[in-house]
Write a protein that binds this DNA or RNA. Structure first.
Lengths: 237, 237
DNA sequence: CCCTCGACCTGTAAG
DNA sequence: ACTTACAGGTCGAGG
């Protein structure tokens, strides 16, 4: 259905995820517009491991925003999401009432750039190497994302549909940004800032925001993956 | 019945007082456990001047806490309570349905330790010298607090069968604190911190929290006090 | 408009 | 390691 690059607020202490209004109203209509409206509802979404996550979904009049509240912070913590990472919302092709949530690392997060940890106390080393992520479980992508069986389609889009996994890219750093070529695509990455918790919100704009390449990272290597899994691991520099 | 050292939240903008669960369930049972349960109820309590205060008392499912809500902020304002101060809840010895509310200054509040003001913007000068408080009005203390007609019973004063629980230890650390001897008792007090508004929550543990010595500060010096008033003023070290 | 209030929520620290 | 208590928050309704 859609995805969102997480802002610092989305992963911070506010314990809520703002759903972009356009998607919210399109995919998660609230109340129906007549009677039982904005009391909020409970969304149940399956993650890459089949686990069900329940989120309270509601509309905040004060900010005119649609948000996930209860349950969200647990998800963030469990998946170790950071600003710049991406969450995905998908619907089952056959059973439309079955919803899925997934995620992937932002290009600048996820184990590279050791000094790039958002928020203090993040150097827990939990991001090293292993990238958990959405596995597209029971979902065959090619309907919801008809043409996106490519990596970085907006730039290039290599065509392989299967596991190109672990193409860890060097992503080398120099001063602060460095261009690396990944799948034949030039990318910019911030590397090692001087010290501070640079708000990764600043860096979000540099990431290709709403593109729908599917760079999934397997959560359990032995997951019962059926076919269409695309995953990629970018390498610690 | 019991008392509580007020936290910043208890006197802040949340407009509620959390009643420790053990006391709440012991003294203010809600709902009776069968039918009309946790709809909350209205508590009427007399203060030191005989004035009646009404508070809404209820249970918050979400946080599993018992709270006073409506009416509480008025009380805080009226008595000029601050974090570290103590509120007391008592029951009439003869007429058990008659409830009383009282309070006293925390040892670190109330006009001493000028640098020790909790929360920002607290230096309103309202606390200078005069200590308002519970006067034990119609209440003869010696039942509810049988042997505690002493100061600092937790340090001295004998082992009454009742409320000696939570003998919070001085727990003071080093550099910022100073030991002073007062009424023959060694006490540690924070002196002149380096700068910050030390959250008085941090200081709560240093106050003898739930001990039941009766250090009442007369509200009106000319109040029709009967007998059992103990008051104490600590000096700025 | 601001404040109170009611209901909900969460991180943390104890036990 | 789990559970609980609760301090410190949120939003939204209502006055």
């Amino acid at each position: 259905m859609f995805e969102k690059v997480l802002t610092p607020s989305d992963v911070g202490k506010l314990n809520r995820l703002v759903i972009p209004k356009q998607y919210a109203e399109k995919y998660f209509p609230l109340g129906g517009g007549d009677s039982a409206e904005s009391k909020g509802l409970l969304l149940s979404l399956e993650d890459e491991s089949g686990m069900c996550w329940r989120f309270r979904y509601s509309y905040w009049n004060s900010s005119q925003s649609y948000v996930l509240t209860k349950g969200w912070s647990r998800y963030v913590k469990d998946k170790r999401l950071d600003a710049g990472d991406v969450v995905l919302f998908q619907r089952h092709r056959i059973q439309p009432n079955r919803l899925f949530i997934g995620w992937r690392r932002g290009y600048l997060n996820g184990g590279f750039t050791v000094s790039e940890h958002v928020g203090k106390g993040d150097m827990n080393g939990n991001k090293n190497g292993v990238q958990l992520g959405w596995t597209t479980g029971f979902y065959s992508e090619h309907r919801s994302y008809p043409i996106h069986h490519r990596h970085f389609p907006y730039l290039h889009a290599g065509g392989g549909s299967q596991q190109d996994q672990k193409q860890r890219t060097p992503m080398r750093n120099s001063s602060n940004f460095r261009v690396l070529r990944l799948f034949g695509v030039n990318m910019e990455c911030q590397t090692q800032n001087d010290s501070e918790t640079l708000s990764s919100y600043n860096m979000s704009p540099s990431t290709p925001s709403t593109t729908t390449h599917h760079l999934y990272h397997l959560s359990q290597p032995s997951y019962s993956s059926t076919s269409n899994h695309h995953y990629l691991n970018m390498l610690q520099m």
